[in-house]
Structures are given as C-alpha cells and as structure tokens.
Design a binder for these strands. Sequence first.
DNA 1: ACCTGAACACCGTTCAAGT
DNA 2: ACCTGAACACCGTTCAAGT
Lengths: 197, 197
Amino acid sequence: MGGTVSVEAAAPSRPMRADARRNYEAIVRVAGEAFAEHGTHASLDDIACRAGVGPGTLYRHFPNRDCLLEAALVESRYKLQELGARLLEADDAGAALDEWMLALARHANTWDGLADSIAQSLSNEKSPLGASCGTLVDATARLLEQARHQGAVTADVTARDLFVMSGSLAWAADRAARGSGEDELPRLLALLMRGIR
Amino acid sequence: MGGTVSVEAAAPSRPMRADARRNYEAIVRVAGEAFAEHGTHASLDDIACRAGVGPGTLYRHFPNRDCLLEAALVESRYKLQELGARLLEADDAGAALDEWMLALARHANTWDGLADSIAQSLSNEKSPLGASCGTLVDATARLLEQARHQGAVTADVTARDLFVMSGSLAWAADRAARGSGEDELPRLLALLMRGIR
DNA sequence: ACCTGAACACCGTTCAAGT
DNA sequence: ACCTGAACACCGTTCAAGT
C-alpha cells in the first residue's frame, strides 16, 4: 500500500547489473511505443532492434509477449488500483461500479488488441499478465459486493463476468466507430449496465 | 429469394476451367477445416498445401484472407439469412430480436477469432466479408424496426450497434469460461438485452 | 552474469516459368 | 487461362560464442 510503484519494481530478483537494467528499461519504454503504434502484436524483433539490443536479450528479460505487455502496463495498472481503492469509499456504490467499469474498459483500450490479450491471459496459469489482472478482478469483486449491499445491483453476475464484459465493451467501442472517432464507451456501457440493475 | 445458394455461387465470373473449379472447392473445404482447428489466423500456406495446390493458386482465387473467410462462410450465412426472414414474421418481435442476436453471436463463434475478423471487415470498404455482413446488418435493422414498432425496444440503439454487440457477446462468451465449457451465450445475452428494453 | 547475433523453422506474398 | 514453386522479406525463438 502507498508509496510509488516504478517500472523497476517489476524487474526480476534483486541485484541487476547496470547494463542489464539499462537494457531492461529501454526495452520496456520502446515496447510501449511500439504497442501504441502497432497494437499488442507489434514485432518483438523490431522492439529489440529499436531498443538497441539483440533479440536474445529481449527474450532473456521477457520470455514471452505477455511478460513484456505486463511490464509495459505496470504504471497504468497501478493508477487503476488507486482508483479502485478510492471508489471503494464512494457514497453511491452503483455509480462507483459504473465508473470502475469505464476505467477498466479504457485501460483495455490502451493499445489495439489489448482487451484480447488480457482476456486470453486470464485463463492462462503461467501468464504474469493474467496474474496481475487477477488483482483487478479482485477489486471488481469488492466494488460489486458493495453495490449489491446497497441494492444497486441485483442481477446474477460475477466479478469475473463484469471484468470480461469491460473487455468486451472495449472491444465493441473500438469497432462501433460511427463515422467520426467519437468515444462510444459511455453510451455502450450505459446500455450494458441497465441490464444488471 | 428462395432457391439454393451453393458454394459455387461465390465463384468469380462465369465459366471456370474444370481444374480451376476443383482447386477452388478443395481450398474452400480445407480452409473450413483449418479455421475450425486453428482459428481464423490459420496458415494460408498450410491450407494451400493440404488442398494440394501451390500458394500462388490460393492467392489467385482469394487475394486476401477475408476473401477466403467469406467463401468458407457462404452456406452458414445463407442459413442465417433464412432464419432472419422467418423471424421477421414472428408474433413477438422482442423475442425474435433476442433469437436473432443469439444466432448472430453463434455465427461469429463458428471459429476462434471470427468475431474479430467480421467486426474489422465491417469498416473495410474492399472486404467481401464486410460486404456480405452488411446484409446481416440490414436484416438486423428490419428486426429492430419491428421490435420498436411493438414497443419491445425503446433504447437509443442502431442496427449497427446491435450487430457489433452480438460480436462482442461472442467475444465475451468465449472468454468467460467458468471452468466447464458451458455455453455462456444465453446468460450474457440476457444481461445485455435487459439494457435495451 | 549477461549480451550478441547467427541460425532455424516458419509465415504471407509475388512472379517468372511452365502447361 | 491457369497452375507451379522458387524467391523474397519477414517473423518468433533458440543457442553457441563471446565479454
């Protein structure tokens, strides 16, 4: 609790050689740019190259794509968890749940294809991305519990359901695209949330 | 209207050399198997090989992946359109719309990744898959119109919205996966449809 | 301990050469 | 007219060789 979670906190074991740490951070930074530009399927070779390291170095630090996605999302997810804690103390638990779902969907829309990567990782025992997203499901469970307590939600729905639905919402908003690049998320969310009251 | 739409109806121009037609049909058949096995991202090289043709032959008949998906879905979509026509004559337009949404979602779940391919193709001018899915959006519009007429739907929602949502539903059901391989579609659909009443 | 980059098996796509 | 398959530029991944 509290304190600052920096990118380095996600690094393995304890002591890291200076050059190793430098490479690690360069890879994460470049990866963020590449994912933003080409989606979560950006070429890992290209990321290694742009970070000035060989492909082997990338694979040493991040044995698979999920590991790299996870590392590149650490800060963003930390902010999300802060929001979750704040929303847990809100008066209107129903509105808090709405806001949380919207924040989850926006997070899943950080990069093209991220909603899919996250949802897939969720049922993958060995995925670090799935593991860390589990904490988001937990936060969702706490908010759902409160909303139920206040009678704001009566439908038979699980936290896992809601988490997956926030992803499907992100997926849908990306593809609804009615001409101009409007933000479809709030509209679609409202439609969905009416269903669980 | 009526009559039978066969796979061959999707073939280009009119006269087709016997060997060309044989290859065309072999590719479509094998593609269906490959998509079922590996999802819509199955290797095209592998499909060509398994169909006993060179990669060039596959590309001659299907310039891109969407063309092949479209060809492999012709029969399935024809059945869907028949259902749409039948539902248009149902008494309860609200229930008809529910059934239509479920059928759309099941169609999008024919193969892994198909919901994504379809949604993406929808905003692609030159995609034959997107073009043919446009007819499904049209059918959705007719059913939505009737449901509105009967007062079964009052929410501000377009046919395009509903079509995209059926895809996001398919997406979500594939990933909700609560342990056993249950069919999550009806449950999630019910949640969603409550939102547009 | 960590990095490098060649190497491998693959992929989508094109196109000159065949029939 | 249509097919073939070599060729190209890529990709993810591994691993022996370096420092």
